[in-house]
Amino acid sequence: MKSLNSAAQAVSTSRRRLLFGAAAASAGAMLVGCTSNESNDSKSEDTAAQVADDKPGKKVTIGYAGPQADHGWLNAVNEQAKGRAEKYEDVTLEMTEGSNDNAQQIGQIETLINKKVDVLVILPSDGKALTQVGLRAMRAGIPVVNLDRVFDNPQAYRCYVGGDNYGMGLNAGRYIGEQLKKKKNAKVVELAGVDNLELTQDRTRGFDDALKNYPNIEKVARQAAEFTVESGQSKMAQLLRAQPQFDALWNHDDDQGVGAERAIEQAGRDEFLMVGGAGSKHAMDAIKAGKGVLKATVLYPPTMAASAIDLARALAQGKGIGGLAEFEIPASLTLYSAVVTKDNVDEYMPTGFN
């Protein structure tokens, strides 16, 4: 989630992406099922693609390289990939230890290339810095599924899978706007992530664009944190001191949101509603309990890693996706940023991460 290259780069290039409005909990479901246009009653020409399903097929080895799991979301991504691979009898997963050091991660990927894995799933520590090793894999005939942090060059991957940072902000703004649309002179504040990251800028841009549709709402303050509990607490405390009254808070990240909640409780404030980001189990538990200010969270689904494994398996087996007319898997899959509230939290609870 803490990418140096936003998924929006892929989103903005329409000719190499397809937008799928699927909820996070069902992100991998499209890969199940089988279709054929061959009639049982006649010998028509078989032009239908083979489609990936759960039945054992050709044995494949998938190499997986991600950054160090130093954040709840990143750990959940790794677990999603591992768990999905274990589901398939025909998949062997070669998983690296993970690193936030670009040179070390490049070395880990080169080791997987030398092992001649059938396909690679790469969540780069820095998409721009690791573009060359993606190109190296593709030139070696190993398809690459680029996860979350997009490479600089579309030739460095066969398929991109990621979340929608702009969509997170947009849906957070829409939810807050609908809750406050009848309130005159409503005020909102924003607790952003790391400000120099494009993903943070995209989330803010989406939020601001959504609020343009609600002229009664003004964003009166914004503070950038660092996606940590400690930064969330300290930056939220600053916002609370500077703003004696407001009606809603949009927090970009549920991990830093734990700290924000602490600051809110210490200040004894409860006059506003809070919307989080990413979809942690802690946030969902709080939403379900309905006792604090946290009323919703906007998903950035870690299930994208499970979908990446599905797509990697389909690529290695030369299969397509059930439910689509296309013979090939898509060039890009962007997950939808669903808003989780008390009304639907039970549905999304299985995707919540620690």
Rank of each mutant, 00 (worst) to 15 (best):
Y157W: 11
A24R: 01
S39V: 05
T200F: 08
F272N: 08
F246R: 13
I106A: 05
E198H: 11
E271C: 02
K235Q: 14
D247W: 06
S39P: 02
Y175I: 01
V345P: 12
M30F: 01
Q317T: 13
D346Q: 02
A314W: 09
C159W: 07
L239K: 12
H282V: 03
S12L: 13
G322N: 14
E94I: 07
P330Q: 13
D46S: 08
L170R: 12
T351I: 15
V121A: 13
I106S: 05
K59M: 14
V121N: 11
Q238I: 12
N40V: 10
G193L: 10
N251H: 01
A331W: 04
S99Y: 09
V32Y: 05
E198K: 08
K82V: 04
A308D: 03
G177Q: 07
G63E: 07
D41V: 01
A312M: 15
E38L: 14
Y348M: 08
L294G: 03
K2I: 14
E38Q: 08
E38F: 08
G268C: 05
I106M: 12
A308L: 08
D164M: 01
R149C: 12
N216A: 10
A48M: 10
I264R: 04
G167M: 07
I264P: 04
E86C: 03
S125P: 00
Q9M: 02
G134M: 06
K235C: 09
K342Y: 02
S44G: 12
G352P: 08
T96S: 10
M138P: 03
S3D: 01
K183M: 11
A283H: 06
N171S: 13
P154A: 06
W250V: 02
A260S: 12
S337Y: 07
Y214S: 02
S231A: 15
R241D: 06
K182W: 08
P124W: 00
R149I: 05
H252G: 01
G323H: 08
A316R: 15
R149Y: 08
L240S: 08
I264H: 09
K55A: 14
L197V: 00
A338H: 15
K59Y: 15
T131K: 12
Q50M: 13
T131S: 14
A325N: 11
G173A: 09
A10R: 14
Q105H: 07
D46N: 10
K187P: 01
V194H: 06
V60L: 00
E261H: 06
G28S: 03
G268R: 05
I321E: 04
D247E: 10
V60P: 11
S234I: 12
V345R: 09
